[in-house]
Design a protein around this nucleic acid. Sequence first.
DNA 1: GAAACCAGTTTTTTT
DNA 2: AACTGGTTTC
Length: 898
Amino acid sequence: MNPNREQKKLIENTEGSFLVDAGAGTGKTFTVTERYVEILEKAEPKDIFLATFTRNAAEEMSERIAEKSSYKTSKIYNAPISTFHGYCQGLLERHGFDTPKKLGIKAEIENIETLESQIRERQYFDSFYENFRSERPEYFEYYHLIQDSSDLLSLLKSLASRGVIPEKDGWFLKSEEYLDGDFDTYREIFRELNKPQEGRNGNKNQSILRQRIYTIKYKELPEDAPSYSDIAGDRGCKQVRKDFMKKAFKQDREKLKEFIRDIYFEYLEYSLENSYLNFGFMMALAFVTLYSNEEARNHESFNYLMIDEFQDTNEIQLKISLLLADRPNICVVGDWKQSIYSFQYADVDNIRNFEGRMNENIAELNTGGQRVSFDSLEVEKIGLKKNYRSTQKILDAAEQSFELRGNNYERIEKPDLVSLESEASHEEVDVRKLMCEEEKENILRRIQEIIGNYSIEGEKIDYSDIAVISRTRSFGLGLQDLADEYGVPAAYEGGIELFNTSEAKIVLAWLRALRESRKGWAVILERSGYSLTQAERILDEEKEEEIPENLLGFREKLKDIEGLESQLRSILDRYGLENPVAEKIIEVLTDVYRSSFMTRGELIRFIEDNIEESEIYEVDTSRQRDCVKIQTIHGAKGLEYPVVFVADVNKGRFPSRNGNYRPVMFDDVIGLRQRKVFDPESSYVFDNWRTEILSRCVGSKYDEERRLMYVAMTRAEKYLFVSAEKGRESRFFEDLELEEENISGEPEKQDKTGERRDELKVERPESTRKRLVSTAERTDLDEAFTDNTDYGRKIHEFMKDYVKNQRRPESQVERKISEKIDSLSGEIRAEVEFTYPKDEVVHTGRTDLVVETEDKVRVIDLKTSENFREAHKKQLKIYREAFESITGKKVETEIFHV
DNA sequence: GAAACCAGTTTTTTT
DNA sequence: AACTGGTTTC
């Protein structure tokens, strides 16, 4: 593959700073890795920092670079090619020990756990918040405004992502300025929105702002607040009264800021005392470390910086990269049009206003001392505009995304953008809009039609060439069910609410029933065909004898079964539930139960919390080989398919009408604001008219939805269908100008065994994600992956046999395990059971590998999943304590991932 | 013909 | 809460 002119320019120019606008399908990964290899001509891997958005992407980059360069693979794998999060975690471990003191926090950073689980963090935060409330009664008014503590937590996280950080008696650096907002920008926006609109025959109509403000009429405002007509004038008035521009912005926010600072600071303190950090806090502390510790800065500095997927970074990451740069040599690569992670606090302004933002931050960071090694950054822009993925028809259609209105009165101007030019070699084929009364059925029917009649360059299309992507998960899950019904091979890929499935609910019920809980029996009886009232009667009258014999018998049988895994299996088997979801439930529960030494009660609590938080787990159903992929837009980002359906472009779904309602909000322009006020006189919570006005000036919520549409459509290589249900089409669908197709029809039922396997496969370009294993390993894994726990069991079995010298490795994974075991010296034992009393509890467990030498013991645990890293750490901690007390030797623990 | 009003509907994505 | 899509008022 030879680079084109723009790609070449970037690859060859390794000196200076660049902003690379790398549109969809323009060979970004190729260019970045080539440039990296080019830099290796004059620098070592350790001098080059390459940041990616996901761990998978980091691995893929390493893999590709290792292939291209003459360096040893291990050298590349140890190079700083990682996510920002991963890098910052290491940075804190190396230099963060004293960082909390810089903010006035006594705790130290040592053995800190990064909390990835939302559930656990909410539990921690809630217990912190409860305590805070009782200790700080002076903030009572805010407790009335904030009903849901998670609103507060997400506010703190969003502050951290922007580099707003609290100190004991104030704010770190210019944080406070950020909280005050930016009046000048606000003024401009207000004036712009308040211009009367062009009506017919040169008439003026009311301004957009005045229109938007109308609902203030129905707000509950305190008595002294201005009325709607005070603000917007009388009927026929075209504009909001101009003096309200200032009046709305000016509000005394001292107490609110103090409240937020105290809660932020104390929660950070609490979190450090309890040795955990969330992603946001971790990044914030990494930033504080680099800012305030010159030694750390000198140690962690790079000659070359490259940041991939820059549209998904936030301000703190931008600040960190400035402090990491040895010299003005920073290359950021991304596409603002594909920025779709604002809910993860990504800030699209990072890329849209790169040079400005960099220079503002350099100035800020260099006040009172040189911390960034240079005083300004000159940035050269490079645009990659040759697209090697899609036909021109598809690219043109996708570009329409930015002209789609979100609602009936939105007026948008098409933003400046670099149009992509198709270099794809395939013929021009279909780009259509589909509309039908039964959308899901119609999509399936259309898929059948494609499979039967369409071809690409003479070769027929496979199911696996087709993807259906939608804004929401629920549509995809619904489609999956229907596809199963009709026998169309399809696989939903991505996370589901694992514990909201019927599989999980029956498991929960039996776990409860085993503890004699009424709650569990109600569900079980209902499942057995009793009505809710019948079930309640039986339970109310405590007539256990009325519970069917077989159910009671089953409970006794369960009681006798040893081990959680077998119990779970019998429960699920009883209901005939043998599917990937059931397997995942078993995997998650046995893993978390064993590794965190939970009681049964805690396990039930764990499930309940998962249900409440709608926690998402990845369930892998992709083992089916030739099937249609069903994904969310977020899930499909970075991937490509010959045939793409963008489905469910319906009202309320896409664009999503997200209620971004927060009692306390933060925005770059208007700063920190409260949307409600508490009146102590009447003990009543009123709406805050000022914030009502301000919040209508900022945030065009549909921009990100338009970018989502762009991402969705650019996934397609040859065929693109945008689909909606008749009568429910969204504004997006209506505005999209494409050839329409209006045929209804049911899909045919097909026989699953009748899958057309004999058809020729169309060669697919390498996907840019999910390439954790090389192709050779993948075939091995496919064999082993009949299901996940099965896989784990097989691996453990092999390990045991190998230690006993009873088996030879046969697959890649097994070789990896055997090499590991061969590398160990000492007395090796597999599956060692132990009993260890600690405090009131007796821990029993079984460790995978124990290697004993004269002076020490090594405990190695095999893990097949990285999902529960923190729980695993806890498990190992207990192993260590146990073996130390049993053997009296020094104990080392290790997780071995396979 | 624009502005005002009213009643009814729907509510997401995940490193 | 924020929208849609209708009717009523000015």
